[in-house]
Design a protein around this nucleic acid. Sequence first.
DNA 1: TAGATTGTTAATCGATTAACAATC
DNA 2: TAGATTGTTAATCGATTAACAATC
Lengths: 250, 250
Amino acid sequence: MIAVTFPKSIQPYTRYVLIDMNLSNTFPLKRPDAPPIPQPSLSRLPQYHHYLVELEAKGISKVSCSVIGRDLNLVPVQVRKDLQYTGIVGKPKTGYSVSELILSIETFLGWNNINEAFLVGAGNLGTALLGHERFSKFGLRIVAAFDTDPAKIGLWIHEKAVLPLEKLSDLAPRMSIHLGIITTPPHVAQAVADEMVKGGIQAIWNFAPVKLKVPGHIIVHNEDLYNSLASLSWKLARRFRVPIQEREAV
Amino acid sequence: MIAVTFPKSIQPYTRYVLIDMNLSNTFPLKRPDAPPIPQPSLSRLPQYHHYLVELEAKGISKVSCSVIGRDLNLVPVQVRKDLQYTGIVGKPKTGYSVSELILSIETFLGWNNINEAFLVGAGNLGTALLGHERFSKFGLRIVAAFDTDPAKIGLWIHEKAVLPLEKLSDLAPRMSIHLGIITTPPHVAQAVADEMVKGGIQAIWNFAPVKLKVPGHIIVHNEDLYNSLASLSWKLARRFRVPIQEREAV
DNA sequence: TAGATTGTTAATCGATTAACAATC
DNA sequence: TAGATTGTTAATCGATTAACAATC
């Protein structure tokens, strides 16, 4: 037996347990493929950006994490951590320079160099995206649309030509397009994705409610309205189901 | 001093630490306002739903978590946990009934009783949503659109009337509408939200890239394309920045 | 110097995953 | 009975938050 002594201050009616504090167990090496920024932080960055641009328009040049947090409903330390990922450094007591912060976020997100994109599916949603001029401020320019509907091919929507889908895989490498946007009905989305991959496209922004199967090196980002609608309708259903005294807590 | 003895098997070159095992510290009561389902699980449910509907169309009536996981790229235990939140029970060895599972998800998400909604902002995106007939399968029916542009008021878009915004707060309670959709430019989104709240609307699906300020009991769900675009452009920028041997790991 | 804020390390919390028991 | 699968409890992992030191 090994005898161990502890100071008197230990609580009498508590159970104690002995923990292995071997250093190699306690401080495991960080995984080499750990992402340099958590996904939630990444998707908060545009919020900060939008807010900061507004501040700058008001002529405000300095801002602290507590002020940002108050206005955006986040705790200051979270704001600080998020912003640190972009590489910005602040000054104790004064905070951050608004313009530096904006630039830092834009550089980090790659909004400085424009990504040119092809969009497939010139329906309602596709048309809406084609008309979204503001995208260019966020590093995205849609240069052409594709469709299989003969009635749509040849049209110009918001100054962008609608071309036959067959041309995509040929045009993409020639125009060095590496981003594709899918706004087709779900049942053709996979075939469109295959075509994009054939054309050497690196990243797909997918608005069709389908899990695309693509080679591992392709970046896929799903924008599934139904996912989102699900949470909303669940909350709404719950609201009208739960007794009144619970409602405020939902 | 209190003396404590331990068996010999304790590692000699390891540090040990004494932990308070007082039961009230170790097993804190679950928060009463803990959500009954984690947000990530909630937003995976529509994926399962879509997949299961496809299975059913193929005439498959039984399915196991491992099969779902294989096809949807999730680990089986996660599938099981997610599905359990809907209240479904399966049979060991055989799995779940596909049709029961579909029904269970639909009931849980409240897709059985339709939510009627008002949409504000009859621009490109608004028009796209108005034309989205499939929403009705997911518990959503948009019954009217609103705008402030005189050129749009009076139009019919996808069989829905475009009305002047001033009428919203009067019409909403009379038609017992409790869901509002905002597809306006960002600078008017807050004013529209205020108007919706005035009309007694309970939940807002917000497509404008603005953090809305509303009373605490209003459910707000943001659908910010720029958030999403941010992650995508960051990944794309990173892809073309990092050395080749790291690419596959991104 | 005092106070406010940044930057950093440690603790907490929640979601995912692993381990295993129960069931058909 | 053996094997596959569900259901459940425990461990792990990652993100958030708390605590505190450093700095202007």
